[in-house]
Design a binder for these strands. Sequence first.
RNA 1: GCGAGGGUGGCUGAGCUAGGCCAAAAGCGGCGGGCUUAAGACCCGCUUCCGUAGGGAUUCGCGAGUUCAAAUCUCGUCCCUCGCACCA
Length: 969
Amino acid sequence: MSDYDPQELEARWRERWAETGRYEADPADAPDDEETTFITVPYPYPSGGMHIGHARTYTVPDVYARYRRQQGDNVLFPMGWHVTGTPIIGAVERLKKGEETQLSVLKDTYNVPEDTLEELETPMGFARHFIEQHYKQGMKSLGLSVDWRREFTTNDDRYSKFITWQYETLKDRGLLEKGLHPVKYCTNERQPVTTHDLLEGETAEYQEYTLVRFSFERDGETVVAPMATLRPETVHGVTNAYIDPDAEYVVADVNGESWFVSAEAAEKLRLQAYEVAVHETVSGEELVGARVTNPITDDEVLVLPASFVDADNATGVVMSVPAHSPDDFVALQEAKADTERLQQYGIDPAEVTAIDPIPILEIEDYGEIPAQVAVESRGIESSDDPALAEATKELYNTEFHSGAMLDMYGEYSGEIVEDIRDQFRDDYRDSGAFDTMYEFSEEVICRCGGDVVVAEQDTWFLRYNDEAWKAKTKEVVDGMDAIPENTRGEYDHTIDWLNEWPCIRNYGLGTRLPWDTDFVIEPLSDSTIYMSYYTVAHRLQDVPVDELSREFFDTLFYGAEATDDPDERALELREEWDYWYPVNYRFSANDLISNHLTFYLFHHAELFDQPNWPQGIVVMGMGLLEGEKMSSSKGHVVLPGTAIEKYGADTVRFFLLNSAEPWQDYDWRDDQVESVRNQLDRFWNRAQELINGPEGDEELTHIDHWLLSKLQDTVESVTESMETSETRSASQAAFYGFEENLRWYRRRTDTERPGARWTLRKVLETRLRLLAPFVPFMANELHEQLTGTAAEDAPWPDVDESLIRPDVELQERQIERLTDDVHDIVGVTETDPDVVRVYVAADWKREVFDVVARQRLAARQTPSDDVADAGDDVGAVMGRVMQNPDLREKGNEVNQLVQDLVDVTRGQDDDSVDAMAEMDEYATYEETTEFLAREFDADVELYVEGEDAYDPGDRASAAVPFRPAIHIE
RNA sequence: GCGAGGGUGGCUGAGCUAGGCCAAAAGCGGCGGGCUUAAGACCCGCUUCCGUAGGGAUUCGCGAGUUCAAAUCUCGUCCCUCGCACCA
């Protein structure tokens, strides 16, 4: 008998799998494509090493793959490498610059040897290192059943040909369009930057300001003073405007008109695709005291000086809506009070005093002037009051969700702001009264130290806002399996919400935009249909790159009719594509629903026919390490290699799959992993005993039938869980759940008995097959030792109906109950009994039970809305019982008993009640006395209540059917 | 703000979709006992409170409701986590 040595046995199996190409899947293995399973995971992005958090992402699908194989499917589980975009390039640059944290991540966290660092100084060298030394090695160590012949990187020439085909096709179908799009732009480096390039403001959001085109006369010319606002619908409530008198403004030619904006704003507008030529630089003071005309109402309003206006935000000119903005309300009050300042700017204070707030919408509990109520109810008296910001936030919020527009809004009157804001803005933008400008919600600074602003750049984007495309994608969602089911709504929501998506970048690895090679197709856009590429990747190597034309892929994916002169090789490949597709399940991370996974659905909906649409997606949660987020820069990671060395791959796998369901977050805790290892050790040792011990023979007793019956339960529930990728429930049931049964079994019987031997070996064999997807190394090894074949080559167990024994299970439940009861009594009384007396209920009590059971049966056959209630109807039972004169005599005693028995059967299913009706209690306990005697080291005496039972404790009368009375002394 | 998911006994975490067998699985931790030269290994039992008879009391964020019956259903409320775009 050998000890459990995972390192040795796992190495042996890895070698065997590699040598025999065990997981290389070909159509020839099983020509009927009804029995194929094709599963994918997002290909890893090797911009760093693999840690234990990644390990589960790839192990969950492996478990499913192994399960389907045992179910008889030909299973394809491929792997590739995503290198598109900038992260790898960025990592290489940081390495070349000798950046400290980067060096530490590489050397300390991922153990890159000093003399290897140089190899990492090219992007693909960097990627190659982590692919080979980390991901691939980690995956092989974990025992992932991947078909390695099909791997590729997204920077490969052939892959690029494939992406080229995809984007040319999309362009032809009108789903790719050129246009302007807001991007983050560093004013120092004069180029677009990504979130990773930022020093500050990583969480900044784009805010779309509406510019309300107020205007005034200047030197006989009409000049536009665009007021920036996030609440365009308040335009009827404008009473005045504010400008910073001390800031620098310009008069500029903007798209052929004259505009008055802050100097910063002119630059931003230029970046946002306005034609801007600055004519004149002026002080903000120039506009103070001027009257500007509201383009919607034609009202003229006064421009007041205000130091709170930020010239570096939007246009530097703002409109004032004192009725609905607490800020504006307070500002106006302060302006009115400071007559001296007004006079200094040549403004008649009386004119300002005359300004009254103009209400434009109505909300409950806020009176006529909501801003006034908001300010005064909080006792705010000055613009310095911190409560003002809170008042503003709350009022804006309330107005947005429940503010109803007043009469001056014509067709919009009575409508809620939330419902009409966008429409209102669009209408006036179309009519020329409004313009648009983008601004960040907070300050954004580049790593180079430069200011980052919103720029609009000419770009190509995918038209995810196309209604027909959205509709088709929703059909994909409707037809697929979303696991867990509650994610389905998220896909629909994302489809609704998704807008145009810029799909190119200025630099990075990947595929060039075919018709404009200055640009690269970005990572989320070159990873939408690559699952189809796996089906032919290995065989595509035989076709010269140059010959992978548009027509080639058209033939491959759309058939011989798609082109005039179909390529024979493409037609051959098409057969394999056809064989594997569609993807049965894609396993991915839950935060990818809002982009990658939904893109995946979009592109499949468009490019492939319905039979090739995704069949299912399983979404996964993320991993924590000792309760904290993993972080490679902090070195807070566990590498798979380290963990496998310490515990063995099976332990690592089992922990990852058993600690939480795939879609739940899980926490890698050393003590828990350690404990899993101990459990596997124990399992191994027990198995060894059985394998090396006598085979026994099939002379089965009651308890053997019980265990085999329980085994069928387990097979059924494990299978059910596997079907929906519930790896936790499945492994829990197959492993821990069944251990519970074994514990009881060992207590109940002599396991050296030949029948027990036979039973335990049978149970072991079945469990090894159930566990093979989870702990393939150990399960295969033990199964082979036991039967001569590996578990993965044995079929998945079926439920054997003939072994399901409800009667035996019920009897065993009663025995356990009786044992527990005796234990309870021993515990409470703190006695060590010499004798245990058990009294089975008298026959007449059993008759009453039969009436209860019959009543249940009768109720079941009577269609009724509340079958359960009718079956438990105490009155009906009493009626029947009282028809028996012998029972009627017992009066109250019977009444109480019926109550008790109805309680006993309530909540039991019909089969259980049937089994109870059939059960012979006395006989059951009679066979148990020996066990009880052993269990309590006492004499056990069994009596029937009455019938001259020896009853020194006067307890026999307490007996109830299925609840025998007990006396110990 | 918008969208999604949660709050269960010392911790992790089932159960809650089909209310009753739920004082509430399992693992960890803790306690006691056994095995052993010994052990972080293994085996058995206990681990809300009360109780010298298998029982009772109070629990599943908080408050209210529906019901014979609620961790499970309804409403309200507080709190937490995640995603929100050009970033893989």
